[in-house]
Lab assay of single mutants.
Amino acid sequence: MASDGVVVEIGKVTGSVGTTVEIPVYFRGVPSKGIANCDFVFRYDPNVLEIIGIDPGDIIVDPNPTKSFDTAIYPDRKIIVFLFAEDSGTGAYAITKDGVFAKIRATVKSSAPGYITFDEVGGFADNDLVEQKVSFIDGGVNVGNATPTKGATPTNTATPTK
């Protein structure tokens, strides 16, 4: 695992066909100046998982989280898009600690492993708008004895992609 920078880890949970599971997305290594904004994309298989919603985690402190935390689910493109932009203008609602960034709610549709993997990152910046190093650890849903650990090695991303 990367020793510096922010680590975004997609949790690994267990479920069975027809059940709804909650998959946490963790941030670790949050910089001392916090995270003022970030955007990134995960990939998944809508034939295996139906993403039914995404909720902000406990490290989102904006009293009205829909102003700073936004997501979009595109089953036709097989992606989930995340956007966080601190909304106070003063840094008061920045992410300042490690913990759960988001909770992905999904219904298991198939007995195949439900991988959720890193696809791309736009950027991560602290309260001074300084770009942060970030790496990703894939996860998803274990169905029966299947284990979604494909790509469990962190993917280092030093520069934003478009």
Rank of each mutant, 00 (worst) to 15 (best):
I104T: 11
E120M: 02
D87S: 15
L83G: 01
Y93Q: 14
Y74I: 00
S135D: 07
Y74L: 01
V134T: 13
K103R: 10
G123R: 00
P160F: 10
V130Y: 11
G57A: 12
P75F: 03
R43V: 10
F69M: 03
G57I: 03
P75E: 04
D45A: 08
G57D: 06
T155I: 10
V108F: 11
D76I: 01
F84S: 03
I137N: 12
P24M: 04
T149E: 11
D4S: 04
K162T: 04
V141E: 13
S68V: 15
V17G: 04
A85G: 00
D58M: 06
S110V: 11
K97E: 10
D128H: 07
S3M: 04
R28M: 04
A72C: 01
G140I: 14
Y26G: 04
Y44N: 04
V130F: 09
E50K: 15
A112C: 12
S16D: 04
A2E: 02
E131A: 03
F136I: 04
I59M: 15
A72S: 01
T149I: 07
G11Y: 04
D126T: 03
V13R: 09
K97L: 10
I60T: 14
G89E: 00
I59V: 14
A2P: 08
D58A: 06
G122C: 01
G57L: 13
K67I: 09
I60W: 09
S3F: 13
D87G: 14
S16R: 13
K78Q: 02
V25Y: 14
D76T: 05
D76F: 02
A92Q: 14
V30Y: 04
Y44C: 15
T117F: 05
A112L: 11
F82H: 09
V100D: 10
V130N: 06
P148W: 03
L49T: 03
N145F: 15
G29C: 02
K133Q: 06
N64L: 07
C38P: 00
D39P: 00
A146F: 05
F40P: 00
S3K: 07
I80S: 14
P24D: 03
V143D: 14
P160G: 12
M1L: 06
I59W: 03
V21P: 07
N156M: 06
T147A: 12
G91N: 02
D39A: 01
V81G: 02
P24C: 06
S110N: 05
D119E: 03
Q132Y: 01
I51R: 11
L129R: 01
G99T: 10
Y44L: 03
F40W: 15
V100F: 13
T107D: 10
G144V: 10
I23T: 06
I51S: 07
F82I: 02
T159F: 14
I79W: 14
A152P: 12
T147M: 07
K78E: 15
S135I: 06
P148R: 07
F124I: 02
E22S: 07
A36F: 00
P63L: 15
G29I: 14
G15Y: 09
A102V: 05
D4P: 07
F84W: 06
D119P: 01
K103N: 07
S68E: 03
D4E: 03
G91R: 08
P56L: 11
E131D: 08
P148K: 05
G11D: 14
I54S: 03
V134K: 03
V100K: 13
A158T: 08
T71D: 09
P148S: 04
N127K: 02
I79R: 01
K150P: 12
C38K: 01
T66K: 05
Y115N: 06
E131R: 01
F82E: 02
T153Q: 12
F84R: 02
L49H: 13
T153W: 15
A152M: 03
Q132C: 08
V141S: 14
A92M: 14
V8R: 00
E131F: 01
G140L: 12
G123L: 00
G123V: 02
G34L: 06
D39E: 01
A92I: 13
F40C: 02
L83M: 02
T155V: 12
S111R: 10
G57R: 15
G91C: 04
F69N: 01
D98I: 05
T157Q: 14
G5R: 11
D62M: 15
G53P: 11
V17Y: 14
V143R: 09
P24G: 06
D70N: 15
D119R: 02
E22N: 07
T66M: 05
T159S: 13
V121K: 13
T117D: 07
T157C: 14
R43Q: 07
